Simulated assay, not measured.
Amino acid sequence: MRSTRIMADLSVDDIEVAKGFYTDFLGLSTEEFNLGWVARFTSPDGEALVQLVTRDATAPEDPVISIHTPDVEAAYREAQEMGYEIVVPLRTEEWGVHRFFVRAPDGNVINIVGHPH
């Protein structure tokens, strides 16, 4: 699998309450998107970013990081071939991303995400 972007998925109780710290203090002033339960904030140069998550809206567990890849279908097949536990099967979400969750051997849940071809 080829990773093109890795970002932390930080668990917060309330995105609106938490966002001031990440935008005002840490300088992640660009809100890339906000779905109410997940929001991504980046620095003006796009180099630093974080996602704040209250509770994943469509999954039984929350991921600790999100990994972007240009070929999520190939990554899914590779994870299955390697015998990793698939927590959420590959699917296209209503907000347009194609993703699946896989459990790392250490127990962390990872969101593998891309955009449909």
Rank of each mutant, 00 (worst) to 15 (best):
R2F: 02
S3P: 14
R5E: 08
R5D: 06
I6S: 12
D9T: 11
S11R: 14
D13M: 08
D13L: 12
D14A: 12
I15S: 02
E16T: 14
V17E: 13
A18P: 04
K19E: 07
K19Y: 03
G20Y: 06
F21A: 10
D24F: 01
F25N: 05
F25K: 09
F25V: 15
L28Y: 01
L28K: 01
S29Q: 07
E31S: 04
E32N: 15
E32V: 13
N34W: 02
N34K: 05
N34Y: 03
V38T: 10
A39K: 06
A39Q: 03
T42P: 04
P44L: 04
P44A: 02
P44C: 05
P44Y: 04
D45L: 05
G46N: 05
L49A: 14
V50M: 03
V50I: 15
V50C: 08
Q51R: 11
Q51P: 02
L52A: 09
V53L: 14
D56K: 08
A57G: 14
T58P: 03
P60Y: 04
D62S: 13
P63N: 10
V64G: 06
I65E: 03
I67Y: 01
I67S: 07
T69C: 10
P70V: 02
P70D: 03
D71M: 07
E73N: 10
A74D: 00
A74K: 00
A75W: 00
Y76I: 06
R77N: 07
R77L: 10
E78K: 13
Q80I: 10
Q80L: 14
E81G: 11
M82Y: 08
G83E: 02
Y84K: 04
E85A: 12
I86T: 08
L90G: 09
E93H: 09
W95D: 07
W95Y: 15
V97I: 15
V97W: 09
H98D: 07
H98C: 14
F100L: 10
F100V: 07
F101E: 05
F101V: 09
V102Q: 00
R103F: 02
A104N: 00
D106C: 09
D106M: 02
N108K: 07
N111M: 09
I112P: 05
V113S: 12
H115W: 13
H115Y: 14
